[in-house]
């Protein structure tokens, strides 16, 4: 359907002069309409958001909260019903901004009839990169995402995880300043998830800005500096992850090698000072940590098998 709310490259005022701002939205709203122009759903309601250079910003929210709509509006895949969106100082509908953006869609959406090498070369050509640069970056990225050995295979033969990794490689072909990741860990095994998160942190270390949205709260918690929580198209929470998660009236003490007597004494000290002991027990690790530990152990000592079911 053709939208009459056409892209307007020059009608909007430019964002603030602050060169640190990579993404800025002002009262950004999107209403989906049916063929007859009747309102179907109000997906986004007056979103004001700022993403600064060099940070990892997470968009959180349940299904239908407006995360993907926000990303599509920022990429110019949708036109806003009202409000403005600026990316790297340009209106979101200006294709020139895409020169410095890398985008990994939710399902990768790649051409299955191409092989990995052709895919990266094709996207490199879309950035007008010369042949030598394309070749160099293609090899480098194939190594980074570990599909060098399968580079001549067509993508239709790839597993979901491999396709995801090629999707990430195509998002980095232009060495972008801003990387937009839609559910980056979808379809990846725990090792792949960890590698993806490491890579995101590495991109941050290179000074790049990352905007990601995810359902997996642990992923967001692990890598994001700041998050925005959306619900039914409205911004409900915005701030630094560490600040938002800090429980101010609870004190955590982590120590190792304590005897049972010492633990009893600690409980007595808490009681003496009028505090309430919430818990004094051995902590459990995360399942992710346990899984990675097992895999690393298996790789170090191949052939070893589990002796029996672990006792609780």
């Amino acid at each position: 359907m053709v939208s009459t709310a056409a892209p307007a490259a020059s009608q909007a005022a430019s964002p603030g002069v602050d060169g640190d701002i990579v993404i800025e939205t002002r009262g950004l709203a999107k209403v989906y309409r049916d063929f007859w122009g009747r309102q179907k759903v109000r997906a986004l309601k007056g979103l004001d958001l700022t993403v600064r250079r060099g940070e990892i910003f997470g968009l959180l929210g349940p299904n239908g909260s407006g995360k993907t709509t926000t990303i599509k509006l920022l990429l110019g895949l949708l036109f806003p019903t009202s409000g403005q969106a600026f990316v790297l100082g340009k209106p979101a509908t200006d294709v020139a901004k895409n020169e410095r953006i890398g985008y990994l869609p939710e399902e990768s959406y790649l051409y299955k009839f191409l092989n990995a090498e052709e895919t990266l070369d094709f996207y490199g050509r879309l950035f007008n990169l010369p042949k030598a640069v394309r070749r160099e970056r293609t090899q480098k990225l194939l190594e980074l995402v570990r599909v060098t050995t399968a580079k001549k295979r067509r993508l239709r033969e790839y597993s979901k995880g491999m396709t995801r990794r090629i999707g990430l490689a195509q998002a980095l072909i232009n060495d972008p300043e801003l990387i937009i990741l839609d559910e980056p860990t979808t379809g990846l095994d725990p090792i792949g998830c960890r590698e993806m998160k490491d890579l995101i942190l590495d991109l941050k270390r290179q000074g790049k800005t990352v905007l990601m949205c995810s359902h997996l709260l642990a992923d967001v918690q692990d890598v994001c500096d700041r998050i925005a929580v959306l619900h039914q198209g409205e911004l409900k929470e915005l701030g630094r992850v560490d600040g938002l998660l800090k429980v101010r009236d609870v004190t955590e003490l982590r120590a190792s090698g304590l005897s049972d007597e010492c633990k009893t004494e600690l409980a007595a000290v808490v009681a003496k000072h009028g505090g309430k002991l919430i818990g004094l027990d051995n902590p459990t690790t995360t399942l992710e940590e346990l899984f990675l530990e097992i895999v690393q152990d298996a790789e170090a000592r191949p052939g070893r098998r589990a002796a029996s079911e672990s006792s609780t």
Partner: peptide
């Protein structure tokens, strides 16, 4: 339909 167009129009392609 396959949304492969997303990876094209998010590049600097006019």
């Amino acid at each position: 339909k396959n949304k492969t167009i997303y990876t094209i129009v998010t590049k600097p392609v006019r």
